[in-house]
Write a protein that binds this DNA or RNA. Structure first.
Lengths: 334, 334
DNA sequence: CACATCAATGCACACGTTAACAATGGTCTT
DNA sequence: AAGACCATTGTTAACGTGTGCATTGATGTG
């Protein structure tokens, strides 16, 4: 059996209430008594029973970190940075519980009692169901990475539409007119935003993108690879390809080199995300950086603020994205 | 307030004991009564309070997933696959609590009450302290990825020494004699194992590796890059470089292309891990696959077995690694 | 018919902690 | 000197659930 406050009380010759107060540093207890009790507790290697605390305090000490999916379509780098960001702010105040939303068959078990707060790293509009559920249970939450209009929900994300606009504009400014697009996972909000930014740039520069220059993608290496193969088969090939993330860009570059061609001399490529390897592939990938770790850190910080101050701050925070120019785009001089 | 078994009891006109038994499907309760109570519970949207359950049943429903570090030296792909593997076997029976061991200032809070079991994804011998602590508390655990001799501890890992031996031997068999090594993070067991396998191959083929052909590394892109820059400056350059993981191999390849040279024509490179992008870089990377997701799945499965059967199975499971030949090694014909 | 047996349910307590209220003893005030 | 007040500690109940033991009523048995 493990040590409880009653055991400590017996040894200290006081009531267990006094022990509880002493260990919680209540001002009701004499400093001297506190000190004595703390010593005994330490010496007995006492650890509070969090189940009991939770029961009476109505707090779980759990923070949920939910991803749209753990099994498909989430890139490793993204996942890693998100967990790091959140983990860096919670330290030992909360336990971090990681889950994939698509693993839930029912949201029934998500209650105030089991989570003090929840961070949703949302990639799909389908996540709205769980967001609504959490909101209806009155659990503090922050939604990262995707805009959400539910009232009373914190929201932190980067302006991906703007980032995509930047990257696409850059292609045009480098002289490209035949520009192709590899889209992200259908249904993922990021896919839509990035496409929107691309389209806006095309419209702005009055560039027409034929249907054959648009390919669906799955945010993975293979789909980028396949899409580029298609483009290379066209009679009139694009001179530049906008890939909605870095992994697809890498897959696309692979297809180019397999075809005996060269990036950027024969065809230019841009990506999105600025994953760690973007700077290290050859040629180094021109891409858009979005501050994932910062997003999750900011999100978690605000969530903790809402939990602990019981307030209901509900602003939306939009962080800027940034174009990182490297070597994968060629300057076209007509 | 949320619904409790007492509320259900009132509505059903029975005692809360009966409700508890009914919902736990006790054979003591009449089938008909059970059915009625289940219906009421569902209709009232009852969810058990896990804090209360934990308190009385002495189970936390928590499974710890601890990494040596979350902040440095753990690659994203590795991290992702490990979480996926464990997550795939626990479904909704346990909550998965992710932590970095180096975030702990004291192991004090790790007790039987807070974790039903713990998966340690260990990369460093320094983790021995927490492993001993967990063992001393009698918490079921499995250590992945690193051999451990503590008795009563499950252990699942891949034979990295053998994998490194295979890869290094392959270099020799392709005609290479001037072979360099980029090591992994000092103190990480994997770094030692991979180096050992390399050395064994060198000894087996009676190849001498001069000191200038050995560089330290940190398992990241940058250190591979730096190491290769050093090798390229040598008067007598190696013809092949063994990198202790794929990320360093990628960094090394970058340095080669920056120097206006070519992999594998001017210099050959092999990696280790077979990360997702290994097949998609140019040239595609020859490397060693280790089954991370399988390791974590197997480990978690055995751990759950030990928890739920209260048995004390303690075998060590060693999974084979596999050489994946791609395009980054040239056949040298003298 | 009396008694044992058994199936189904209820009573009361336990788990470890916190907190409202009560109690104690000392000090200050007038 | 007597009462008010305050600092410190104790008593007791509560959080929601599970379980050993008691209770009830029905059925079976000799």
């Amino acid at each position: 059996m493990s040590v409880t406050i009653k055991d400590i009380a017996k040894l200290a010759g006081v009531s267990h209430t006094t022990v509880s107060r002493a260990l919680n540093n209540s001002p009701l207890i004499q400093e001297e008594t506190k000190e004595r009790i703390r010593n005994i507790a330490e010496q007995m290697d006492y650890t509070p029973n969090y189940s009991a605390k939770s029961l009476v305090l109505d707090r779980s000490y759990n923070l949920g970190l939910f991803f749209t999916t753990l099994s498909k379509g989430t890139s490793a780098g993204f996942f890693y940075e998100a967990i790091r960001g959140v983990n860096s702010v919670i330290q030992d105040r909360y336990q971090l519980i990681v889950k994939g939303i698509d693993d839930y068959t029912s949201f029934h078990s998500i209650t105030r009692k089991s989570f003090d707060g929840i961070v949703i790293v949302s990639q799909s509009d389908d996540d709205q169901a769980i967001i609504d559920h959490i909101a209806s249970k009155g659990i503090p939450q922050v939604v990262l990475n995707r805009p959400v209009e539910t009232s009373g929900v914190l929201n932190v994300l980067s302006d991906e539409e703007q980032g995509a606009f930047l990257a696409a504009s850059y292609l045009v400014e480098q002289g490209h007119k035949r520009i192709a697009l590899v889209e992200g996972v259908k249904g993922f909000k990021s896919a839509q935003n990035r496409k929107d930014g691309f389209e806006r740039a095309m419209k702005h520069y009055q560039i027409i993108v034929p249907p054959a220059y648009r390919m669906p993608g799955l945010y993975d290496l293979e789909s980028g690879h396949k899409a580029m193969q298609q483009f290379l088969r066209l009679d009139e090939r694009p001179t530049a390809v906008f890939c909605c993330n870095d992994e697809m860009a890498l897959g696309a570059m692979k297809a180019v080199s397999e075809a005996g061609m060269n990036v950027p001399n024969d065809i230019s490529v841009v990506g999105f995300d600025d994953t760690v390897f973007a700077a290290y592939v050859t040629p180094a990938l021109t891409t858009v950086r979005r501050p994932i770790e910062q997003i999750s850190r900011e999100g978690a910080l605000r969530l903790l603020g809402n939990i602990e101050n019981k307030q209901h701050e509900t602003e939306q925070l939009l962080l800027k994205t940034e174009l990182i120019v490297r070597e994968s785009v060629r300057l076209l001089t007509p």
